[in-house]
Structures are given as C-alpha cells and as structure tokens.
Design a protein around this nucleic acid. Sequence first.
DNA 1: ACGCAAAATGTAATCCATTACATTTTGCCT
DNA 2: AGGCAAAATGTAATGGATTACATTTTGCGT
Lengths: 343, 343
Amino acid sequence: MGVDTVVTIERVAQRAGVSVATVSRTLNNSPAVKPATAQRVRQAVEALGYVPNQSARNLRRNESQVILALAPNFSNPYYSRILTGIGDRAWELEYSVLVCNTLGHANSERRFLKMMESHQADGAILLGCHWDYSWLARFAQRSHIVQCCEYVPDLACPSVSIDNYAATREMVAYLQGLGHRRIAMIGADNQYISTRLRRQGYLDAMEEGGLEVREDWYRLADADYSFVSGQTAAQALLAAAPRPTAIFCVSDILALSAIAAAQELGLSVPGELTVTGFDDLDYTTMMHPHLTTVAQPCHEMGRQSVDLLLDGLLDREEPSEQQIFLPYRLMERESAAAPDVTA
Amino acid sequence: MGVDTVVTIERVAQRAGVSVATVSRTLNNSPAVKPATAQRVRQAVEALGYVPNQSARNLRRNESQVILALAPNFSNPYYSRILTGIGDRAWELEYSVLVCNTLGHANSERRFLKMMESHQADGAILLGCHWDYSWLARFAQRSHIVQCCEYVPDLACPSVSIDNYAATREMVAYLQGLGHRRIAMIGADNQYISTRLRRQGYLDAMEEGGLEVREDWYRLADADYSFVSGQTAAQALLAAAPRPTAIFCVSDILALSAIAAAQELGLSVPGELTVTGFDDLDYTTMMHPHLTTVAQPCHEMGRQSVDLLLDGLLDREEPSEQQIFLPYRLMERESAAAPDVTA
DNA sequence: ACGCAAAATGTAATCCATTACATTTTGCCT
DNA sequence: AGGCAAAATGTAATGGATTACATTTTGCGT
C-alpha cells in the first residue's frame, strides 16, 4: 500500500546531496556534522518520511534496545504494577520491553534465554521466577540480568527488592503492640527468598516478644498465593485451639482469604480477628475492612530494575552484585485492631 | 566472558563441512537438505552452541517476529488478563510481545507507531486506546493492527470483543426479572464503543420493560473507571429521590465503589440495594457479597487477537474488516437480589 | 555404462545502517 | 598568499543470515 520503493538512508543521502555517512551521523547526533548540513538532512528525512530500519542498526551495533521482563504470571496485579514501572522507565530511556509469561515452565525459560543470545534482547529483568540455581548462575554469567522482588542469595547478579525481613518484624511487632499474643502466619509453599525472610522475620519477632510459636499456627498456601488455598489455610488456623487472635499473611490475596474464612465462621474482622496482608494492592482499600498491610514500592522497584540493568549494559563492567533495598511502608488501616480481651 | 569469537553461521558451516546456505536451510527446515547432512549440521550447531542472530535474519527477511500490545494501563487487571492471553498465543506461534503502556499519551502513540515502520514490530494489538479517528485510520492503512475490547466503528481494521449491547440488555432484563423497576446506571466519561453500547443497551432494556429512565439515575465515573470517581457517582445516585433499588455499573471496580458507598450509608447489598458489575475480574469473588457481573473471556480475546493479527500478517491480503464477537456470560452471584418490597 | 532429470549443495548478492579510515574543506596564523 | 591543523564529509568495509541462481551429485532408466 502506498510507497513501493523502500526509503533507505541512501535515498535520504541523495536527496540531501550528502553521503550516507553524513545522514547517519546526523541522525545519531554526531557533533561532527555542520548545523547547516544537518538541517538539510533533516529536511530530506522529513520529506521522504524516512524511518531507519532498526534491524540493520541492531545488526551493526550488536544491540537491540529491548529488555526482557520475565514473570511467572502477569495477571497478578503485583507483577503488573512492577511491569508498569519497568515500562515507564524503559520508555524514558528509549528501550522497549518484551514481556515473557513463563508460568514457571522450564522450556519457557530456555526459550527466553535464547532471545538474549540471539540478540533479540540486551538484558532481562526476572520477577520471582522459579529458576533453579545452577541454571540461573550460568545464565547470569553470559547475559545481563537483574532480579526484582525476589533474588537468589549468593548469586553474582544485581537485585532490587524491599527488606522483607525487617518489614515482617515491624508488622509482627506492630501486632504485638496492639496487644496480640496469639499470632498465626499464613506463608506460601515456595522457595522465594521473600517467603523465607518473612518466615524468619515472624519467628524472630515472636521470640523477641517472648511469644509462643506453635506449629498449628503456621499454614502454607499455594506457591502462587491463590485465594482458595489461602481459605483452606485460614480455616485450619481458625480451627486451632487456642485460636489465634491475629493472622499475618504473606500476601494481600491471602489476607482476603483469611477475612473471607473468618466471615464464614461468623467472626468479625478486626473485632474478633486481626488480619494483615503484604504488598498493598489497589483493592485492599476497595472493600471493608480496609486491609492493614505492608506497602511495596512496586512501580519504583520496576523503574530501578531498569536503571540497574542498563548500568550493567552500558558500562560493560564485570557483573556487579549490587543489591538495592527500597523503603517499604506499614499501612495501618482497618483490618488490624486490639484483640478482644474477653476472649 | 567466555567466548571471544562470535559463533556465526559461517563457523557452523566450516565445522559441518558444508556451505552457509545448507546450514541456513537446515535451520529453517527446508526439505531440500539430505537428512544425513542435516544431522551433521545440527551436531555442529550443538557443538558450537550456535544461536542465529535474529537481527541479521530480521534485516534480510524484513520482519521481526514481534507484535506490539498497546494499552492505556497495564496495571488494570482487565488489561493484564488480555495481555496474558496475547502472550500465551504469541508464545505458541513463536512471536514475542512488546508491551506499550500508552497512558493515553499522544506522543506515546507516535513513537509506538514508529516501531512498526522501523521494523521493530510486525503488527500491533490495540486495547482500548484513546486514538483519534483520523490518525488511527492512517495508521491502520499502512500497518497491521487489530483492535481488542474496543473498536472504532467503520474503521477498516479487524477487532475482537464481546457484544456489549446484548450483554447489557441481558443484565438489565435480568434485574427487571428480579423485580427491579428503579434501575440506575454508572457509566464512564469516555468515548469507548463499549461505553456507548452499554448505555444504549441499558436505555433499550429500560424502554422494553416499560421502565422510567431518569437523568438523575445516570452518573459518570472517570474515563478510566477509578474507584473514587465511582464512589462519588454512587453517592449521588443514592441521594436521588426516589432512590434506585439497583445500580448497573459498567465495570467491576465501579460496582465495588457502589457497594462501598452503600455500606457507608448503612445500606446492605443486596438486601437494600442491588449492584452489578462488568468484566468478572478475579477479586469479584474474593469478598462478600460476591459480585453479580458479566464475564468477558479476556484470555480468549487476547488469543484471538493474535490469530487475527497474524492472519493479516501472513497472507498479506487487503486489510479485512473482520469483527469477532466472543460469548460473554452473566454471572449470577450475591450482589443482585429481588428488591425490598416494603421500600 | 551412459544420459538425464531430480535432488542436493554451493556461490555470491542482498537486506540497510554504522563506522574506520581516507579525503576534502574550512579557518586561522604568519 | 601559503601552510597547516581542525573540521567536515565521503568511501567502502562491516555486521550475519537468507535466497536467487549456478553447480554438482544422485539415482534411475535403458
């Protein structure tokens, strides 16, 4: 449709009465081009509607201006908020973002890795993927990657996250401050560092408060924090004797499950049961009780991941092991209150 | 790190004792290669760890195997579910998906368009973008695009969506069947076709039921269905006299706003007010009352958008105007019930 | 064993922008 | 005006895979 001859740099050069080199330099803002010449070139570009062929450029420059963002599940609002941050920052830096929904599949991983080796992408940001360590280590060695939210300890690969351990301790201490002594926890059946650190933060906070840690006050939801698995876990918790007065959940969805489970038992939240979440997704304030939770700077984490990745990409240093911890925030809302002293 | 000489097709050819043409043919599964030869080539590929340079391939073949997915906001779970569908189908067809968060920005649009002209992408899927008509028409003429969820009527450009008009009529008829006669509506302040069709569906269903349509039973939320704007709209509705017994909302978020507004006034849902949503996002069943809503096949809409796009891409026909309407489903749950007859 | 079509493989042009290196132009100093 | 360094521009090689066309090999018929 329309144009039949492809507009190449050569045609621009002809029209502007210069060589292709000059056109290229102009378009790349080389200071070596005389302003008057640059102007002529730009006019020719405009007149012909010339748009450089990126494939050719990429081939020659051996780069793609594309970064990968891999996550097990982009439907999860937590990931999609980070993705938005990644997209925004990439946009500012004139990079494009290729999204890869791995679903935790091993062959997905391999194919996405190949995209870097085949020069379709310059680097990758990994969001909570299920990579096995040795594979990831090899990957990290030959390619530029940064880990976001989750990270593999001892891996020579930069990462961006919050301090999950401190955040959890703070939350559990907050519950203690409210007067809770029987504090349960719903974790997740995965090996994420965040999961492990939150568990440890819980344990240490309980010990520090001199509170009892009971096995039957600890339940696991699915690896991916599904709502129904959270309900099951919460039901078990609420059947324990003595029953906990507070449940610390490692995600907002799980907190919602716990609230639903409590309501089905006729327990009011926070009157008879305190529930706290983690992440601060939008819908935590779209229903009552508003969820008391830990806010993660998702958008900013996405942005900084891009910066970190491009740092490594641009100055071609040895892969750094830089770990960035962004500030979290405890959001005191409605789902946590002092326990019922008559209970 | 590691390899210092780039492994090119030439090196593979040497190692396998054949020409580059044979290597290329082998890798592209040309039937012209003798099986024995193909095997030798594959061994060499394996041994050298050769991965073809996609930039070179793209340059030569004048394609990129990349499709764009543009939306105003990927943090919205509605869009991110569609995006997941797009990603899944693209994965199967060996395409990659570049996501573009346009935020409704005009210069974003232009830059993303350029990505197609610069051969960084072969086609694009537009999800509810704020394009102005004439620009979009020009765009559609020179590039392969398909519209998903929303579409511009009379534009020669294929689309995938549900029948918003029929779905709305069905929902409003359902409310009437429940016994409601005072049915209000919360729409959105945008020009989306879905918004317009839902408005018309509401009006026609009301007329068909012989029910009164009152101006003060119709309020607009923000263009992007924000929770707070929905609350404001719902508050106004609930202050109307006579007060409606049911509110039809054009999105699940807005339905949540309406429920929140009702609760703040001490009105129970569905006891004293019926509320219905649209989209069937995950969290509609994560709180009580579970939302009665219209389910859209988001994932499938994403998948079919990809198929439609590649149809156009692969057989290079004239741009078709094919419109695909996928089945929706009315989800009867808890937030809609018969009106309180004493009221 | 010869001839010939079909099958298999090879050679080299091509896609288009970038850039090292070569050449020309400019501007300044004496 | 002449000379020379700096500035500006040009020429041509380059990146790596694909593919039209040319050439060789294979296999079959007689």
